[in-house]
Simulated assay, not measured.
Amino acid sequence: MLSAKQIEEFKERLLKEKDKTESNIENRETDYDEGALSSYDNHPGDSGDELFLRERDQAITDLETDMLSDVDLALKAIEEGTYGICKVCGKEIELERLDIIPETLLCIDDAKEEAEKNSLNEQQRPVEEDVLDPSVTATGKDIDGDTDGFSKVSDFGNSDSPSDNEDGIDTTRS
């Protein structure tokens, strides 16, 4: 069980992390408020770089927003007196785990289970595959074991010239 002193230390760390993360998000947002009025004189590559940087910063902001949510939940748990207790199984969260990830509300076992569930959800196939020909498998061969459609079509002819053959012999004429 965590002592009152330990809980107070974790609360201070969480509050510092919250302030730092909020400041990072705010600074990142103000960096893009200033910009050129027109992109007329910019090279297209510069516009691509700018787009990439904005998307990267947005991804970082999204991660930090999730982190803020976790920190807020941990601070709420401190106020409710449930900090340091796994919200799934009710066991004590290891002190070493809290020291590394003070915003966690799960013990290591339940965190692993949640991560496995999330990874299974990410392994679902794309919805576009629902409209694909069901006779074609992931190997590129159809049910009969034939090769893909391109190979079937190339059996009827292609644009290879005699120089593309190993012998240099024109096989297109009979």
Rank of each mutant, 00 (worst) to 15 (best):
G90Q: 04
G90P: 04
K91G: 13
K91P: 05
K91V: 15
I93V: 06
I93M: 03
I93S: 05
E94Q: 13
L95A: 10
L95E: 14
E96K: 15
R97W: 03
R97S: 04
L98S: 04
L98R: 06
D99E: 15
D99T: 15
D99P: 02
D99A: 15
I100S: 13
I101P: 06
E103Y: 12
E103Q: 15
E103D: 13
T104Q: 05
L106N: 04
L106C: 01
C107P: 09
C107T: 07
C107L: 07
I108D: 09
I108M: 11
D109P: 06
D109F: 11
D110S: 07
D110Y: 09
D110M: 08
D110C: 15
A111E: 14
A111N: 12
A111K: 15
K112R: 13
K112D: 15
K112W: 14
K112N: 13
E114S: 10
E114H: 11
E114P: 02
A115Q: 14
A115L: 12
E116V: 08
K117H: 10
K117Y: 09
K117V: 07
S119V: 12
S119L: 14
S119I: 10
L120V: 07
L120W: 06
N121V: 09
Q123W: 06
Q124C: 08
R125P: 08
R125N: 09
P126C: 04
P126K: 06
P126G: 05
P126V: 00
V127S: 14
V127K: 15
V127H: 10
V127W: 11
V127N: 12
E128D: 07
E128N: 02
E128S: 04
E128V: 01
E129T: 07
D130I: 08
D130T: 09
V131N: 13
V131M: 13
V131K: 15
L132D: 14
D133R: 04
D133V: 02
P134G: 06
S135Y: 10
T137H: 12
A138W: 11
A138L: 13
T139L: 11
T139I: 08
G140K: 11
G140L: 10
K141F: 08
K141P: 02
K141H: 12
I143F: 09
D144N: 15
D146Y: 13
T147A: 14
F150L: 13
K152Q: 12
K152D: 07
V153Y: 01
V153G: 03
V153Q: 09
V153P: 01
V153K: 10
S154I: 00
S154F: 00
S154E: 06
S154G: 02
D155T: 10
D155F: 03
D155I: 08
F156R: 06
F156N: 08
F156S: 05
F156Q: 07
G157Y: 03
S159D: 00
S159Y: 03
S159I: 00
D160A: 05
D160G: 02
S161E: 02
S161V: 02
P162T: 03
P162I: 01
P162K: 01
S163N: 06
S163G: 03
S163F: 05
D164R: 00
N165G: 07
E166F: 12
E166S: 11
D167K: 10
G168K: 01
G168F: 04
G168E: 02
I169L: 00
D170E: 03
T171K: 00
T171I: 05
T172V: 01
R173L: 02
R173T: 00
S174R: 06
S174D: 05
S174P: 03
